[in-house]
């Protein structure tokens, strides 16, 4: 594995190997001293052309836990448009001797372009609607902790499916792990064509019925009013995950959310903090999984 762009070319063995490393990283994170010297002397650049404090923090902390040096760049693609290009930015950073680029962009394919331009490892931290592989890995890791083997498990993903890289990457990875993925949302926020073998439905009940786990997606506020949807109330009425609706899933089915949460929009407020919520576990696992990804890409001879 030279880059982590998406899951093309992945098999279950590779996922299992990564998760094994992630479990070792979790043990490291449980220690009083949460740092290991593994990537001493390596440099990781987080390059975020679209703001995301959470993912950026998670990656930077993961890199620091492994003793890598971290440089970070933030700037919107639109401000870049005026002068410097994405390519210029990346090549400039590369000149500092960066070993891995963690890239977030609002356009699909930027990490793939970067991988063509750079010699360093490239990790996709979310590209447009396309993919967010580390999020999917941490979700699958968290689901495996909660449910065991995901083969044959029904996972319902609810919300703005159309614009969601999390939905796409989860459909791809959970499908690879044998889960049956259902994607539910209001019709204007559902893609017109299916992807990665996941099932699409506008009927929330159909997706939730006997689900082994439920994942609510973050919904952009601007899409709720005047955009693709009539109103926030309209969304809540149809698609908010409530106690009653969660009761359609299997007893005790866990609830996930990639964060940040719009409280009382995607999920009824009390549920988000309830015993079935794995939201904080996801954050914790996210760090371990990202450490594992950095380890697999960088704890070896440079390419």
């Amino acid at each position: 594995m030279r880059h982590l762009l998406d899951f093309s070319g992945w098999d279950r063995a590779r996922v299992a190997a990564l998760f094994k490393t992630a479990r070792a990283m979790k043990e490291v994170l449980s220690r009083p001293i949460k740092t290991v010297p593994t990537l001493k002397g390596r440099t990781v650049a987080t390059v975020f052309f679209e703001p995301s404090t959470r993912t950026k923090t998670s990656f930077e902390l993961a890199a620091k836990r492994l003793s890598a040096d971290v440089v970070s760049f933030s700037g919107s693609s639109s401000s870049l448009k005026k002068g410097e290009s994405i390519r210029d930015t990346l090549l400039t950073l590369a000149a500092y001797g960066v070993d891995a680029f963690v890239i977030r962009a609002d356009a699909a394919g930027v990490p793939h372009q970067a991988a063509r331009w750079l010699d360093a490892a490239v990790i996709n931290a979310g590209d447009g609607r396309r993919a967010h592989p580390t999020q999917a890995l941490l979700d699958a890791f968290t689901l495996e902790e909660a449910l065991g083997d995901l083969e044959g498990r029904k996972i319902a993903i609810v919300g703005d499916i159309l614009h969601s890289r999390v939905a796409r990457s989860n459909a791809e990875l959970l499908g690879l792990l044998g889960a049956e993925v259902w994607l539910a949302g209001p019709p204007p926020l559902l893609p017109r064509r299916p992807f990665f073998g996941a099932r699409l439905t506008a009927r929330l009940e159909e997706a939730l019925k006997d689900a082994d786990a439920v994942m609510a997606l973050r919904i952009q506020k601007e899409r709720l009013s005047g955009g693709r949807l009539p109103s926030e109330e309209d969304y809540r009425d149809g698609y908010q995950i409530t106690e009653d609706r969660l009761a359609l899933a299997k007893p005790g089915a866990p609830l996930l959310h990639p964060g940040p949460l719009n409280r009382d929009v995607e999920i009824e407020g009390t549920l988000a903090d309830g015993p079935r919520s794995l939201v904080l576990r996801q954050v914790e696992n996210g760090q371990a999984v990202r450490m594992a990804v950095l380890y697999h890409l960088l704890a070896r001879r440079a390419a």
């Binding site: 699909a108 396309r130 993919a131 796409r168 893609p191 017109r192 064509r193 299916p194 992807f195």
Partner: peptide, 15 residues
């Protein structure tokens, strides 16, 4: 072009 391939690629489709 809007089709299953580009929907999976996450590129906005033009049907």
């Amino acid at each position: 072009h809007e089709c299953p391939l580009t929907e999976a690629l996450g590129l906005p489709g033009n049907p």
